[in-house]
Every structure is written in structure tokens, then in C-alpha cells.
Nucleic acid binder design. Structure first.
Lengths: 218, 218, 218, 218
DNA sequence: CATGAATGAGGTTTCATTCAT
DNA sequence: GATGAATGAAACCTCATTCAT
């Protein structure tokens, strides 16, 4: 089951290694600038300058400016959404300790926290630009609906059947879990990164909040 | 106490009535187009065309394109954040039934739900453009820190003292409440407005989720 | 002989008195701004603002922006060139003391010095804009050729016949006299007005320079 | 002593050779059009058209329209003012025949006459635009005060000490010499170029005028 | 492969002028 | 007469993209 994930992820990594140095510089520069001022307000000339290459060089590697954006955002989407269930640990937890919802959540939380911590600009670009590019939105929905949602749904049903969860429709539960987690991560890294965070404690509290929020009525 | 809110809000409304018809058309067109494609990708010529005015007319009313954006976003910020505590009802609830945290939350939820329902494009522009315009972000933080946070904090402390709330730091509680509510509203109106929502029920569930999530440990 | 001069000059003065207050404000503002930044870089809106009138008001009095320029420059041309020979004194000197070339020059010098002192911006506009507007150049040449040159020529011939002047062609003498005088006045009021000038002495020296420069070879 | 001049001048010439053909066309067109209608009334689109390049090409070489003006005027300023004393001949005259003021003047006169004859539009632009651009005026004053004035002053003092010159302050003498020469050159090439000039004779007369005008009182 | 000069469409903004009030 | 909102042509300038070197 996890094979196709890993296949996909491996593909991404290989892809990354096939980059020439110039290409890598271009991507790095583009990511920085796109994150800062947004795709539409970034100019290829500024990207070329920051990357230390000629403007023409960008277009040798990416047919258009939009191509460059897609090349940046698509892998992020996959890496941001897929691994939610891809890590051995997450699956292991679910397979081996099927009664421990809390550890399941905690695992996802830390996992994604680390991912955003190390890829903030990429995530920022992805979120910002989805709003303006229908294709990106559709791409994201596709990945979500085909890969994330069904797995999440399965897990929710399992716990609901075991009376470990409140009797809300699965989509509602998924929404609450996700907006709470994403809400924390965005507040932590994008909205108020300058605050003095005790990350461990705050994640603990957030998980507590979700767990109690979804506990079955008594 | 609510007087200064209402003063501010009234000011906004008066301001709105002083618009010439052309100015109103320009604003309407700009809001639509900014929400659709983002500020940076919108052209003043397109705005003028959709508004049915000459391009020059835009610049008679708004010195620059950015001015137009600010003129749109600033009032939204105030109207989006201030009234969280401005409605007579919210205050009344808190003043008269100081033990009913649920009704307090429910009130805010419905209140903001209605606001976004009726002002979706405006809210969308505000959120999208805050990412790219430092001034907007600062403006928002100012309103939030000066007007919203202290009131929220006061309420949280009240309920905590009465042992109605889990013993988390106030900022954590505020974050959880807000991201959960905003998470619902954004999912409802911006991310997946095409789904078939039972809004009443979903808000009820969301409030339930928050209430249980924040209930004191037993 | 002086009657047509005076007629013309009187016409100008009457013309000046027929101005409405608004018109006077417009002219004043236009003169200031034209002198500062040049006709082409001055905007009617700025003129209107400085004059304290509506933009439309300018066009009620002057059909076009260029009209406004012409209305300013034409009288200056006449007042700058004609009076060289118009003053009673100048003529008197020449008629009654036909052997005193120095006093004749001195009279012109002081006369024009005073005029520019009191009308610097106007003179500046005239000189600057002649370069860009063929019509102004032609206008100036017409006045010069028809009114100034013949009189000057007559005077030169008189003194040459009396052996009071070097035997240069009249046009050369006229050029030398004029560029020397204008050179002083422009240096004094436009190029280096900030210097500490002893005007009396400097005019004396300039006249001395011309007198000796034009003295017949011995 | 003359080395720094020549360095500067050589720099200018090298600078000129580094131009691409398109850049040269742009400069040529700009000079023509600026001279004709003035900087403010010239449009970059017209310059591009006359130069036979795309409008954008102008801005690849000159960041702004003003930049283009500066790039044209700055070298003219240097070439117009510096060489007054830079030519080997002028210096030679002064060093080797220190009693011949007339030859010294005559040399400058012919020298600058030839320069303006070959660079009329450039000189015209310089003079016209100094009036409207404070920076240009300051640039000119700097060159004049630092390079031209001191040398001129030195020469004047030399001849005054030898009783070859009238006892006027040096600045007055410099002004008279310069306005007379410039007066001739401008009349010749800019104000009345259409007249039938006998340049040799006229320069001779002008020098005569200056020499006699500045001869010591007897 | 890489460069960067050149392009030209399209962006924002200015401005003289008109006209209903 | 006076106003100032409205106009739209034209101004300056930016930028993604191409292509000869």
C-alpha cells in the first residue's frame, strides 16, 4: 500500500538530483522571491539577478515563468499532503495500535510541523498561489481527494466504530482536525513566527484540544 | 464601552455614502477583479472597463492603484475584526449570562459567518493581500492587538477563573478558537463553497468541538 | 515718433487692468510655475491649484494652455524690447546731446536692469520658451527688426559719422552692445543672483567696457 | 598640469567607443529631438521611432528618460568647459608668450567656435536644460568653479600685474570676456544662423572689442 | 548550454480639455 | 462665470520572451 507513495516520493527526490547547478540556483532564487512578493509581482529579471545567471538561462530550463512556478509548487503539494500517511511510523501506529488515536494525531502533527519548519517558503508559495491559479487548486484537490481523504476517512471510520470519536460526519471531523493543525502551523511559522513559542507544549495542547473536541458525547 | 466601536463603524458607513456613482462602480469592479486574480495581476484598464468608466477616472479618485487597494481593504479590516465584540448581543450575553461560554462563542461564529457570507470577495482580498503588503499586515495586527485581543483575553480570564475552561494560556485558547472558526468559515466560503453544506448543523458541531476541546480536564 | 510706442505700451497697461481677480491669480501662478519648471513641465492642474481656482476656470479665460503662455510672453516681449528707445529720457539724451554715447548706453542699461529686476520670472520665461516655440521666436524677431533695430541703427550711424565709434558694421556693433548688456543682466539676475553684487559699480564697468571696446581705432 | 584634463577627456572618448550601434542611434536621435523641442516635450516613443529601435530598447540602456538626458549633457559640459585651457596651444601661448593676451583670447575664441560649430545641438540642449534641472546647473557650476575659473583667474592676474589689463576685479573681467564670446557664438549658431556671416572677420572684431574694452585706462 | 541585447505588448499614471451643474 | 468630475490620448516604463552570438 505504501509503495505507490514511496514511488512518488522517490521520483521527486530523483528529480531533485537531476538539476544542474544553475537550475538549482534559479529555483532557490525563485522560491525566495516568490515567497516574498508573490508570483505576479516577481520579475524574471530579478530572479535571474539573484540566481546569478542570465535572464535567458531561466527560459532554457523553464519554458515560461508560469512553468517555473509549477515546477516549484507541484512537488511541494505532493510532499506536503502525501506524507501525512506515508511515514512508516504513522502507518505502523495505526496498524499496530489501532486504539491510539492520540498518538496517530500527534504523529501527523509533528511530522507536518517539521516539514513546514524546513520548507516554510515553499509552503507559503503553495498556499498563496493556489488562490490565483485554478490549475494549482485543482491539482491540490486531486491529490487530496485521491490520496489523503480516503485514508483519513478510513481511519476516522475505524475509530468511530470503536466509539472513540464523536458522531460527526467524517468530512466534518477531518476538517476540524486539519484546520486546527494547519491553524497552529501557520500561526507558528507564517503569521506570528516572531513570538516566543514553546513548540512542544503548544503541540501537546493542540492535540489535547482536538482529542477532547472530538471525544464522544457522554 | 461599545460606543467607540459604533462610532468607528458609523464613520465607515457614512464614508460609504459619500461616494459618487462612478466611484462606487470602480470599487465594485475592483473588488470583483482583485478577488478573482489578485491585486498584482489585475490591471487598472480591466477595472475601468468592468466599471464602465475611463481609465483616467480611477486615478481621479484614487491617486494610485495601491491606493485603491488600501481603500478597499482598510474598512474590511475594521469591519471584520472589530464587531467580534461590538454586537450588542455578544456583549449582552457576556454581561448578563457570564457563565454561558457556549452562547458567547455561538454568537461570534454566526456573526462572522454572516459577515463573510455577505462580503466574501472583500475578505478574500484582505487575506490574500496581507501576505504581500507589509502595511496591511501591520494595520491588521494593530487592530487585532489593540481592539480584539484585550477583550478576548478578558473573557477568557473570566471563564478560566470560574473553572469553565481548560488551563491553557489565554493566547493558546484564543488561537484555537479563532483558527477553528476561521477554518470553518474559509472552508465553507472560499475553499469548498461548491459542497452541499448544512450550515446550521456544521456551526453547531464546530462550537461543540471548541467547547469540548477547551473543557477543563476532569 | 514716440507716440506709437506709448500707444502700444498704454494698450498693454489697459489690458492689464481689465483682468478679473481670478484671471490675475491664474497669471501670477502660471508665471511662477512656468519660470520654475518650464512651460512643458508645468501642468494646468498645478497652476489652478496655486491660483486657487478650479482647473476649468483656466480654460474659460485661455482657450488652451499655449494660449496662456502666449498671453504671458507677448506683452513681455513688447515691454522688454520696445522701451529701449521709448523712455523720454533716452530719446531726450539722444536728441539733445547727440554726442554723448556713453550716457545713451548708460540709460539703456539702467532702464533694462530695472525692468528685469522687477520682472525676472517673466523675462526668464520669454527667453526659455523662445527656444521651443517658433511663433515666439518670430514674434520677437518681428518686434526687434521693425522697432528696435532701425532705431538702434540710426543711432549707430549718427555716432559713426561723428567718428565716435569704431568702424564696424552696425549689426556687429549692435550685437556687441546687446550681448554685453544682456550678458550682465542675465548673470546678475538669473545665472548668479546669489552673489554679492555692487550693481552701480558693475554697470559702470560694463559701460566702460563697451565704450572702450567700441572706441575708434587711434 | 594638463594631464588630468587629458585623462578626463580620454575617458570620455573611450566611453564613446563602448556604445553598441543601437545605443549610438538612440543617442543621435535623442540629441536631435531634445535640441528641437526640448527635453520635456520630447517623447521616448518619438526618439525610439527616429532611432529605429523599439521603445523598450531605450530603457535597457538608460534606466529613465532623465538618465538619457544626463548621459547626453554631462560629457558636453566637460567638453565644453574644460578644453578652454586644455589645448596644448592655449597653454603654450600663455606659457611662451605671456605678453600676448590677444592671441590667448583669439585662441579660446576659435577653439570654442569650432566646438560649437560641430556640436551645436549638444550645446543647445545643455544650455536649455540647465534652466530646468538643478542638478545640471550644479554640475556645470562645479566644473566651472573648480576647473575653469581658477585658471582664468591666474591668467587675468598675470596680465593685470603687467598692466596689460584694466583694473577691474577678475570676476568682472571674466564675465565680460565670456559673455562677449558666448554672445557671439550663440548669435552665430543658435539665434541667427541663417544670416550671412563672415566668421573670420567677426571673430576678429569681437576680439578687438574685448581687447579695447579691457585695455587699461590711459 | 549560456548569454544578454532586443523586442513590443501592456502596465500605471499624467494631463489638457470638455461639459453638465 | 465658476466648478470639478470625467475623459482618453499619450506619456514613461516594465517585463516575459526570443534569438543571434
Amino acid at each position: 500500500m505504501t509503495k505507490d507513495f514511496n514511488d512518488l516520493l522517490q521520483l521527486l527526490e530523483e528529480d531533485e538530483q537531476k538539476k544542474t547547478p544553475k537550475q538549482a540556483q534559479i529555483l532557490k532564487a525563485a522560491v525566495e522571491i516568490f515567497a516574498e512578493k508573490g508570483y505576479a509581482s516577481s520579475s524574471t529579471s530579478e530572479i535571474a539577478a539573484r540566481a546569478g545567471v542570465a535572464e535567458g538561462t531561466i527560459f532554457r530550463h523553464y519554458k515560461t515563468k508560469k512553468d517555473l512556478l509549477i515546477s516549484i509548487v507541484t512537488p511541494v503539494m505532493v510532499k506536503f499532503t502525501l506524507p501525512i500517511f506515508a511515514s512508516h511510523f504513522t502507518n505502523q501506529v495505526f496498524e499496530e495500535h489501532p486504539d491510539n488515536f492520540e498518538e496517530f494525531l500527534s504523529n501527523i502533527m509533528k511530522n507536518r510541523y517539521n516539514f513546514v519548519k524546513e520548507n516554510r517558503p515553499l509552503v507559503q508559495i503553495m498556499l498563496q498561489e493556489m488562490a490565483f491559479h485554478e490549475e494549482l487548486k485543482e491539482q491540490f484537490q486531486k491529490v487530496f481527494i485521491e490520496e489523503v481523504y480516503p485514508r483519513f476517512d478510513r481511519v476516522i471510520h475505524h475509530y468511530k466504530k470503536e466509539d472513540k470519536l464523536v458522531d460527526f460526519p467524517a468530512p466534518s471531523i477531518i476538517r476540524m482536525v486539519m484546520t486546527t493543525m494547519i491553524g497552529f502551523i501557520l500561526t507558528r511559522f507564517i503569521i506570528s513566527p516572531q513570538l516566543d513559542w514553546d513548540d512542544e507544549k503548544e503541540m501537546e495542547r493542540t492535540i489535547h484540544f482536538i482529542m477532547h473536541g472530538l471525544s464522544p458525547k457522554t
